[in-house]
Write a protein that binds this DNA or RNA. Structure first.
Lengths: 227, 227
DNA sequence: CAGTCGTACGATACTCAGTACCAAGACGAC
DNA sequence: GTCGTCTTGGTACTGAGTATCGTACGACTG
């Protein structure tokens, strides 16, 4: 859906004014005036003053949700990692807007809070998805929470790096790198949680050939932990 | 610091009214009136209307920060896991208040958002702490973000369970259980990240003896991943 | 062309959170 | 007694967000 011209003019006016005078120093009347419309019209297009900065989160959330539902991945964590790519892709798509918003949000605490809340919505979506997927398995809720928060954290980390660098590279390899961390991690966790079907499992640790034997023993003990 | 009587009366009045009429339907004037003070006085004790629900987050944050600085743990993740206990302990300490707040926050979106923002502050604190600790090691920022978010997620998960159960048990064993997940996980991650000093390392995968050979190959490939 | 219906806009008025400022009382120190 | 400080109340203001009404414009129909 192509945004209406009025909506676009309002967004442009808002960004301009926020950069000129700052966010708190800009009133909705100012924005409306510069866009050449009335205050009423502003609130018809945006529910609140900060909505003009975070417009399409709802649509993006819906897209992510759809992707999750349509996923054919064989693991919850893989499905979520796949879905989070959509989010990053969306930021990269109009890098201009993302960068302007990033610089603005960095200066205005109220907007930072608002962004945190938005991100939490994605995390919640992931958590519920993984929770359904794992339903019944031990510690399902906990693992769902951990997976969701990890994926979101990885995404945020990569996104922030990309934004700080001014969007000067394609951030998808870094994202995949980070997500590999997580996938390996949770595959590892699944192994930890899978002493079933008779326990006919061989546990092996890997060490540098030069390692101190005592260190090896300590590490093995730690690895086995409270299993 | 024992809270002043006026502050206490205001908090009580607010809770009462929020439960009677709902949060949005209660004005600051109402609260002040029921507490028998003026509106001005309310804003002297609480910066905003929702501050009356989330009072001592700043103090708690400071306590957590102090604990981190004083930590003698040998691993960043252990230090953070230790620090997060303070937070849970604080909730458990006055379970009454925690439970009332929990029930209220569950019904009021604005308060939920506010709580999310508060939690993010802890996460940020953890992230910076771990980031400093790991400074220089590969993927330090990413790992710091992951550790911080995981610890916070585990804490939230345990806390929510405890609150949902009406605070009917001591939540510290569940917390330790969850934190064990994380500590094992990140110890694992450190191992993955240590193919240095010559790379004279043997990589070994572990599988049930009954596993399908193709599945084994796939898993090994995935495990090696982008290493 | 005339009538009409729906939509988008402007204008006004209102509620309420949050800020700034000032005046009055309480209370101890001296 | 008086001075200074600390707390409170009162008053006025800004600005976000809501509700409502009237109206102009265009489209569609007869």
């Amino acid at each position: 859906m192509p945004r209406s011209p009025t909506s676009q003019r309002l967004a442009d006016a808002a960004i301009q004014l926020f950069n000129e005078r700052g966010y708190d120093e800009t009133t909705v009347d100012d924005i409306a005036a510069r866009a050449g419309v009335s205050r009423s019209t502003f609130f018809r297009y945006y529910r609140s003053k900060d909505d003009v900065i975070f417009p399409d989160h709802d649509a993006l959330l819906a897209k992510v949700d759809a992707r999750l539902r349509a996923s054919t991945a064989d693991t919850a964590i893989v499905a979520v990692c796949d879905a989070v790519r959509i989010v990053l892709a969306h930021y990269v798509e109009d890098a201009e807007v993302s960068l302007r918003r990033y610089r603005l949000v960095g200066r205005v605490p109220a907007l930072r809070d608002r962004e945190i809340v938005s991100v939490a919505r994605y995390q919640r979506l992931f958590r519920e998805y993984v929770g359904d997927w794992l339903a019944g398995s031990p510690d399902a809720a906990l693992r769902a929470e951990l997976m969701a928060s990890s994926v979101v954290a990885a995404h945020n980390q990569v996104l922030r790096g990309w934004l700080r660098a001014g969007g000067s590279y394609a951030p998808f390899e870094p994202l995949d790198h980070a997500l590999q961390y997580i996938i390996r991690t949770f595959r590892h966790l699944e192994n930890l949680e899978r002493p079933r079907n008779g326990g006919d499992q061989v546990v092996v640790a890997t060490f540098p050939r030069s390692a101190d034997p005592d260190a090896v023993l300590d590490a093995i003990r730690a690895h086995l932990g409270s299993r």
